[in-house]
Design a binder for these strands. Sequence first.
DNA 1: GAGCACTGC
Length: 830
Amino acid sequence: MPERVLTKFEDDKPTVNKTTTTSAAQNPPVALAKGKKRKRNGTTNTPTNKPDTTTQSIEVDSRPEKRIEEPESKSQLPRPATNGAKQLHNRSKSNRPPPNGRPSNPPLPPHLSKRRDALLPFRQALPIYQHADSIRAALSTKNTLILTGETGSGKSTQVPQFLLSQPWCKKCIAITQPRRVAAISLARRVAEEMGSSLGNASPASKVGYSVRFDNAAGPNTRVKFLTEGMLLQEMLRDPELKQYSAVVVDEVHERSVNVDLILGFLKKMQKEGKRKDAMKVVVMSATADVEGLVKFFDDEEGDIGCKKIERVQTDGVQSAESEKAKGKGKQKSGSGGVENGVVPVTDTKSEPSSTVSTCFVEGRQYPVKTIYLPEPTQDFVESALKSIFQIHYKEPMPGDILVFLTGQDTVEALERLVNEYAQGMEEGVPKILALPLFAALPQHAQQKIFQPAPSKTRKVILATNIAETSVTVPGVRFVVDSGKVKIKHFRNRLGLDSLLVKPISRSAAIQRQGRAGREAPGQCYRLYTEQDYASLEPRTTPEILRCDLSAALLTMKARGVEDVLNFPFLDPPPREALEKALLQLLQLGALTETGEISEIGLKISKLPLTPTLGRVLVEAARPERDCLLDIIDIISCLSVENIFVNLVTEEKKEEAEAARRELYKREGDHMTLLTTVQRYAEERSDRKVWTEKHFVSHRAMQNVMDIRKQLRQNCVQLSLLPSSSTAHSNSNSTDPSSNPSASHDSRTRSILHSLLRGFAANTARLMPDGSYRTLLGNQTVAIHPSSVLFGRKVEAIVFSEFVFTNKSYARGVSAVQLDWVGEVLEEVGG
DNA sequence: GAGCACTGC
């Protein structure tokens, strides 16, 4: 059922001299191309500078099981196996109890051992492989290691394997990832490298993973890849993470809220020392602020500011430093150009008094030439258009172009322009194929970026920042960077999210630029001036400083953090933001007056929902509401992207309006969502056909059904539902036949009352002038045009989303009676 | 009569 599309790879056959790799190998690495002086003391066994040993997978679907690209090592000219094989043999001598009474050393199935042996040379050619001993040594004396390694260094796959044989590593190693696909594909890769089956395929499986909707860890799992959210979930049951000897936190530079929480918890854990054995922590990052991380983990209250952290003495760091010294700033993330094979005498470093080691691992990256605009542009879409055709006419094939834009609108506008101009190109000029790429794009359209272009055609990928982290576009040698990003920012005082176009940070600019140098030397056209670049913020504001903190605080409270104001945050949010979030949790009834987590709060914290939606769910389970299954359907829809397909042409829009009329409910968007889920779930013949007929997104509905199932299970575990309710029931009435009198109106009323309990702050009343103003805060809000209530005048509304774009909009809107709003505001003490 | 970058439990 779930189709897995493996994007084409050359795999690791030792037949290396394929065209793509030879051309790459002939190109010198960055530093050499720049004519930098550097010593070479390890040239003979230097792995070639083939860049991009892709350790991260490419995935553009939120349903990870559908399309997974394997991470792959594509290095060439492998050395024979030596070290790693020994390590693996040592491991297999472990005296773990034989599973199912079988001999403790069952021979590996031949296909597994063959694959493992075939992969070994590629592992050994990874830049990180030479650091294995020093990484082990660092962790045998210190509990924390900060490891900076660029893309392609192999850190995500190799570090856990380095540590597995260490005497302190008796239990499991956890490796966290920000995205599900990455966790799954890395686990698959490491299982292959270790000659193990994956997950629960066999009791002997040593490698597993755990992501939402998919837990694949066996009884003997020693290496477990999990999403950050999953590790936090495990901490709910086991705050000390006793099943792990080490936690490896990967991709820390992305600075998700969850990663910040994990770092805080790990630091607290080490400091409090409640565990019998020390918890080893490896923090891995591409462009981390190493000094900040060292200070964070090494703080001996008081001397934080004066501890001098020496940088690791590798070539990589030196080259980064020398570039800085030249006053040009870093040309690439982290290291500048790094030549592989230079083995430093010591490559991990720590102050004797410090509890933290650091290590820098070089990556594999080609030089990227940067071109700035001489003058600032007013219209980056137009400037991008010019740059695209300038590149296309001037630069030889092959070499695709990746353009970073802000949103669907700019992507589609530029797509039209490019196609228009491309029609006017003379004969003999290579063709242009413009491909849009953004998250809301249907699956098959996203897939196109992985397909090779027809002959004599240059691909131009017009992308949002999905291409910065989540999707690796192959074949790119030219990057056009608008310098802008659409970013969400939570405004504390108004309690609303704003979604605005802003300049990117310098680190994001470097990240985008790096995309041009993954396969060959490249060029980056920045659609701003060099002065503009210099004036950019050095790094993107971490999410925790620009989001609603109520979910994070509830997470902390539920894991035993009493004093959240003094939680060790890598970047402490302003006190005002923390207090605002505490107040919100108090109003939801998730905290008691004394600031302890309440019974309701504990329930909410166990649900994969925001605190507000969790509160709505808990409310719906109360006997006087009795509408839990309906609310689960609605909440499931609110947890995914828009379930209604966006349409472009006027004709299609009218057609869709007509087809959806039977779904639209006058009570508002929430009842409309409920009707849609229930019709979909009742559909017995072909659900896909049904979605097409009603202009509903089939993919979104599949996600809705997954979440619905999970929420029903959660509710059974929390004793909010009897266990019979999860059994493939599509009807929401607990017993339809016995309750025919439960009128539609009373059911609707229960649902709306439940929504109000969570969204009491998101209520507004109609003013005499026809506008709506919030009851708390007296803010003007407009009903978003996507709402079924758009243009309608009702006495009061409750809405599940409050966003500022051009003005304040309420999205996900239902009509309610004003006196209901009064009641609920009284209850929350507003 | 507007238009929502991206993750995740």
